[in-house]
C-alpha cells in the first residue's frame, strides 16, 4: 500500500509539464554535452599539449604549439588557401543563388522544373560531385577540355595546375551548392507581402527601384544567413579537395581542415599540434561569423 502511493506520487510529480520537460530534453542535452561542449573544451585545451594518437609522452607545452604554428609555413599556407577558396566560392555562390532565385520567382512550369533540377546537386555528396568533375575535367578523358580544344582554346590541366586548381574546386562547390541559396532566397522573396510592392508602385517606383528598395531590404536576413553559413562552411572545406587534388600540386590547394587531418591522422600523428591549428581556425571562423552577423544586422537597420 505504502509502495503504490509512493509510486503514484512519483508518477504525478513527473506528469506535470514543468517536470516531465526535463525528461524530454535530457537525451539531447547529454548527447550535446558529450559530443559538442566537452569536445570543444578538450580541443581548445589540447592545443597547449603535445599529444600523439597513441597517447604516449603527453605533456603540457604551454604556448609552444602556437609559436610553432607561426613558423609553420605549410599551416599558414593552408589558412591562405582556405581563405582564397572562401573568397572565390562564397560571393559567387550567393550571387548565382540570388540571380536564379530572381529569375525563378514566378511560378511557371518551366521555373518549377528549373528549381527542382538546380537542387539535384545539393542532394549528392561532395565526394561524388568531386569525382564527377575530376573525370569530366580530366585532360585525357574529360569532355570539357576536349570541347575547349575543339573551339580553339588550350585547356589547362584543371586540377593539376597550381593556378587553376583552386578556382576549379571553388567552381564545383558553387555548382554543387547554389541550389540551397536559391531555395532560401526564393522562400524569402515569396514571403514578402504584395502590399509593399503595391504601395511602392503607387509612389511611382520603377521595377528596378522596387527591386532595390523593396526586394533587397526585405531579403537581407535570409541573405545574411546564406552568407554566414557559406563562410563558415567554406572555411572548413575538405571533401571536394580531398577527392580532386588531395591538396596538391605541391600542397598548393591544401585546406586547413585537410592539414589538421594530415597532421593528426597520418604520420607523425600529432593530435596536440593539430588541435592548435584547429583552435586557430576556430578563432578565425568565430571572428568571421560574429563580424558578418554584426555587419548584416547593421545593414538591416540602415535600410529600414
Amino acid at each position: 500500500m505504502e509502495n503504490t502511493s509512493r509510486w503514484s506520487r512519483i508518477k504525478s510529480y513527473w506528469n506535470r509539464p514543468n517536470h516531465v520537460a526535463y525528461i524530454f530534453i535530457l537525451p539531447s542535452l547529454i548527447a550535446l554535452l558529450l559530443f559538442a561542449f566537452i569536445p570543444v573544451v578538450i580541443g581548445l585545451g589540447m592545443s597547449f599539449f603535445n599529444v600523439n594518437i597513441f597517447f604516449n609522452g603527453t605533456k603540457f607545452v604551454g604556448l609552444q604549439n602556437f609559436v610553432r604554428f607561426l613558423s609553420d609555413s605549410r599551416a599558414i599556407n593552408s589558412i591562405w588557401h582556405t581563405v582564397y577558396f572562401t573568397v572565390l566560392e562564397t560571393p559567387v555562390q550567393v550571387l548565382v543563388g540570388v540571380l536564379c532565385a530572381a529569375a525563378l520567382s514566378r511560378n511557371t512550369r518551366f521555373n518549377r522544373f528549373c528549381r527542382s533540377t538546380f537542387y539535384i546537386p545539393v542532394v549528392c555528396s561532395l565526394t561524388a560531385i568531386g569525382l564527377v568533375f575530376n573525370m569530366l575535367l580530366d585532360p585525357n578523358i574529360g569532355w570539357f577540355p576536349h570541347l575547349l580544344t575543339r573551339i580553339g582554346m588550350t585547356a589547362p590541366d584543371f586540377f593539376g595546375n597550381a593556378h587553376w586548381a583552386m578556382p576549379t574546386i571553388a567552381f564545383l562547390t558553387v555548382w554543387k551548392s547554389f541550389g540551397v541559396t536559391m531555395i532560401i532566397m526564393l522562400t524569402a522573396v515569396q514571403a514578402i507581402s504584395p502590399s509593399l510592392y503595391e504601395s511602392a508602385e503607387m509612389d511611382g517606383a520603377s521595377r528596378a527601384q522596387q527591386f532595390f528598395h523593396v526586394t533587397i531590404p526585405q531579403c537581407i536576413p535570409a541573405l545574411g544567413f546564406c552568407v554566414l553559413t557559406n563562410l563558415t562552411g567554406s572555411m572548413q572545406v575538405f571533401d571536394q579537395i580531398f577527392v580532386t587534388t588531395g591538396g596538391g600540386p605541391n600542397f598548393k590547394t591544401e585546406s586547413t581542415v585537410q592539414y589538421i587531418y594530415n597532421r593528426g591522422f597520418a604520420a607523425p600523428y600529432e593530435l596536440g599540434y593539430a588541435s592548435t591549428v584547429a583552435t586557430v581556425l576556430f578563432i578565425i571562423i568565430a571572428i568571421l561569423a560574429v563580424g558578418s552577423n554584426l555587419y548584416m544586422s547593421h545593414k538591416e537597420q540602415q535600410m529600414r
Partner: peptide
C-alpha cells in the same frame, strides 16, 4: 527553458574542425 534553448542553438555554430580530434579521442 530559454537558457537550454540558447545552449542548444549555440552548438549549431561549433565547427567540426575543432571537435573532430576530441571526438576521435573520446
Amino acid at each position: 527553458r530559454t537558457f537550454f534553448y540558447y545552449v542548444i542553438m549555440v552548438t549549431m555554430f561549433i565547427p567540426f574542425a575543432i571537435t573532430m580530434i576530441p571526438l576521435f579521442m573520446e
